[in-house]
Design a protein around this nucleic acid. Structure first.
Length: 222
DNA sequence: TTGGCGATTGGCT
DNA sequence: GCCAATCGCCAAT
């Protein structure tokens, strides 16, 4: 199932290797699936916060629900970067959203990281969120950004490079990778909270994982 | 220059 | 389950 069992062993360390750009699918929808099971790592001077991606949504080129639908604007410039760059925006006057660019440079596509399963730095996440409920720390895009203290300054970062924010894969456990390596199916559904293209099945999640957000009807288990 | 609106959350019924 | 809060973006004036 999940890696939640590791809570029983606080000393558990994860070995995480950074993803290389060359291994990322150059396609927003494929990359969204690929990222399920991968890890978001946030480095602080005092420690590290990391979490395993359990839910993501694709906003591919031509998608009426995508910010890039009406052509390029200053805000969305990072979605035009090569796959594996961050696109961070501020929404509803209150929350930052972390996205990963998914198309070849010059073409816009984004993947919204909607939820992660906390791995390292849980105490730090609780502090950032001012919340002690483990299940509420990173379940939802706004919460995840707050727990990782991701803001506008993290827009346009190369996530395949060492730095304050990067993408990785757990080394040494089958649960570290996505569908192909683990053999576990990835759930699919329509996306959450949008009005246009509301019937497109572009949301991907790990069935049964308690850190997946959204209503039950969208989170069918295997 | 302005107003409508949003890839959400948390609090209250 | 419903709904207000809140503010940056951008299309239209």
């Amino acid at each position: 199932m999940t890696l939640v069992a590791n809570r029983k062993d606080p000393a558990t360390k994860y070995r995480i290797r950074r993803l290389r750009r060359a291994e990322l699918p150059v396609d927003t929808v494929e990359l969204a699936r690929f990222l399920i099971g991968k890890v978001v790592v946030r480095e602080f001077p005092g420690g590290r916060v990391s979490g395993r991606i359990v839910e993501a949504e694709a906003y591919p080129p031509g998608d009426p629900a995508g910010h890039h639908y009406r052509g390029p604007t200053p805000r969305i410039r990072s979605m035009y970067l090569a796959p594996g760059h961050s696109y961070v925006y501020f929404n509803y006057g209150a929350h930052f959203m972390l996205n990963v660019s998914g198309e070849v440079a010059g073409r816009a596509g984004g993947i919204l990281i909607r939820a992660v399963e906390p791995l390292e730095g849980i105490a730090l996440m609780k502090k950032h969120r001012e919340c002690t409920e483990l299940l509420d720390l990173t379940r939802g895009p706004g919460r995840l950004a707050a727990a990782f203290r991701i803001d506008r300054s993290h827009d346009g970062i190369d996530l395949c490079k060492a730095g304050v924010l990067w993408l990785g894969e757990i080394v040494g456990t089958a649960r570290g990778s996505g569908k192909e390596a683990s053999g576990v199916a990835i759930g699919e559904s329509v996306r959450i909270g949008i009005s246009r293209a509301a019937d497109h099945v572009l949301r991907f999640y790990e069935p049964g994982n308690p850190y997946v957000s959204g209503p039950k009807r969208l989170n069918a288990k295997p």
